[in-house]
Design a protein around this nucleic acid. Structure first.
Lengths: 203, 203, 203, 203
DNA sequence: AATGAATGAGGATTCATTCAT
DNA sequence: CATGAATGAATCCTCATTCAT
């Protein structure tokens, strides 16, 4: 909960809600959606099993809430970074990637859960999360398209490149260890470099 | 089982073993390791629940067998491709990526399962699969290192670049649809391009 | 639950706990630990299978609880009887045997289960029950040793004699039928006689 | 299989029958009738699961065969010992007990199984084993009755005393350890003493 | 005799969820 | 809001047994 990590899960004032969500995040992160039980969540949240249902009517709603928050936060971070960047597409892209990597590092577990447990969402909840994810990718596509139009980028496959940028950023969650060889800032810088590299024309 | 898809699961002669593995692959792919039940697998294999246990003493052994096969096949495909390529690092890298993408496309479900269900493996089984995965990445690292030494590549972070190449190839399994906009060959070519792009020096 | 049979299983207030223990006792007594299923116990207790696990986390815990109660009650009955008897070792022994036989008759099924199902206990639970059993035998050994020292008894093998006394009392559970030829009191008197007879010197 | 232990299980010449019975004895002794599985028995006998059924059509038949053999051997050993003893009831009783204890020590596991697993026998098989057991006790009752008639014994409860003699001998199986404090011969002598002690009149 | 494959019933246990308080 | 008790369905897995070879 430091400066770099504005809390993902809002303190709603409703006593245990945040504790429950945090416990669910941890449980899903450790054992997966099916592997984690509501009892695990209750234990982690320090409340009773039945009390969970006063906040979330079903297990899937816990996952849905988690994924919605994660995607919203990711999207708004990237959006804000892009808005604060200059006109040039490369600057905007760099800002987006730096924000993206920052989010993954700040909320690694949430990123991991968002990556691997979305499949267990169904119906409306799933559609909303997928839409948010698409919005994120859309941001990248816009930047790439603008850069292509302006001649800054030369990639023959703008949308595919955008997707790969997202993949690379998301994949960080699967291997990152705090305190590793690279600082978060270095990691972000590195990935900004990769993103720009992907947008080059034929070599 | 066409030319592009040498069977992942060997026909052992033991009647149902292949059927069981295929059913498990399908079930794990669709519902995840915990989400799929042994009944699902039995149904898919056209045998009785209890008979599964004559072939695999535990559910986790099914997953372990699947992941071992997938990783072995991926590794040997890439190895063969690299061995058959020329001397130049860029040619070798291109061959590796093309083989990699080919595998993911041929065995998309297995690739997806290998990507997302490995976490449910424990003990020795997990170690073996992780080692196989590391071997694959090691292949890329060798190629990148050789190319860096020869001056073909200029990336300042060779190992990180190798990891991102693997991430991009693996991620294909999460979105690819046969019959989509790109043929498998185009997809492979595109990713070979991305791989080389990642290895550029400062832009 | 009459005067002669102060309840073995305490009414804890927790609604079903006593019912579950009683049902388990009956089931284990009738079919043995492995032969009885948790479904049998649930049926006997008039509750659902899954609800059993709110009270006892495993089948073995049911057995452990049962055996602990039986041994505790046996030990405290004998202890109380001995404490209430006079100084003479023969009086104390007689009191112990009478109490022992009384327990076996009052709680025949529990005695039988304690005799034959203890083998299915493992780990700490087993150790505790074995210790309680040894305590009971220790009571007899003390009495016999005291009587030997005072010259009341002349047996050349005091500890072996004590063990046989216990064996004889315990064995009653394997054949006793309420309403048989002997009243419980006669049976107790008879066994008190046997116990003293065992302590004779060379004939 | 030394001189003191003429094999309980006859070598029928039918290849594996003896091995199967021995494995069943060991398995039932270790885990109990329900706790041991036919797979355990097959493994112990070094044969296949299905081959068991060529020798014994059901699991219960294995137990029945075992118990029949054990009881037959016990009975015939006691019978022979009594027949070889002199006229005096005390000599005959002593001989019976010595033979009885010898059997329990020689075939401790079988004795234990006979003691504790008979409950899992049903129907005719059970009746036959119970009858054999009653015959053994009958032998003791005859001796005691004869000794009572002749004035050698003075017990007021001849049949109950006989039962207790049997109980004491049988109980040896539950605690005996080869190489313990007492040699088998000492143990036998001790129990002969106890048996005679039980037959004394009022002390 | 001997075996490997097969099966239906049932084993203990855990699940998400509900309800009365 | 909060809880403990309760439940039916489902979990993985093992069972004794059968059958074709």
């Amino acid at each position: 909960m430091n400066e770099r990590s504005p809390t993902l899960i809002p303190d709603t004032g409703r006593g245990n809600q945040a504790a429950i969500l945090n416990a669910a995040l941890e449980a899903f992160g450790e054992k997966g959606f099916y592997g984690a039980s509501m009892r695990d969540v209750a234990r982690g949240a320090g409340t009773s099993l039945s009390n969970l249902y006063n906040y979330f009517p079903a297990k899937a709603d816990l996952l849905a809430a988690l994924l919605r928050m994660a995607n919203d936060e990711l999207l708004s971070r990237i959006q804000a970074a892009v808005d604060g960047a200059g006109r040039r597409a490369s600057d905007r892209l760099r800002a987006a990637v730096v924000a993206h990597v920052g989010f993954v590092v700040d909320h690694q577990v949430a990123s991991l859960v968002a990556l691997s447990e979305i499949r267990y969402l169904t119906g409306v909840a799933r559609k909303r999360v997928v839409a948010a994810r698409d919005s994120t990718q859309g941001l990248y596509e816009e930047i790439v398209a603008a850069g292509s139009a302006s001649g800054e980028f030369a990639t023959p496959y703008p949308d595919d490149a955008a997707r790969n940028i997202v993949s690379m950023c998301a994949a960080i969650a699967t291997w990152y260890h705090p305190g590793g060889r690279l600082t978060p800032e270095q990691l972000a810088g590195q990935h900004a470099h990769y993103a720009l590299a992907l947008l080059q024309g034929p070599l």
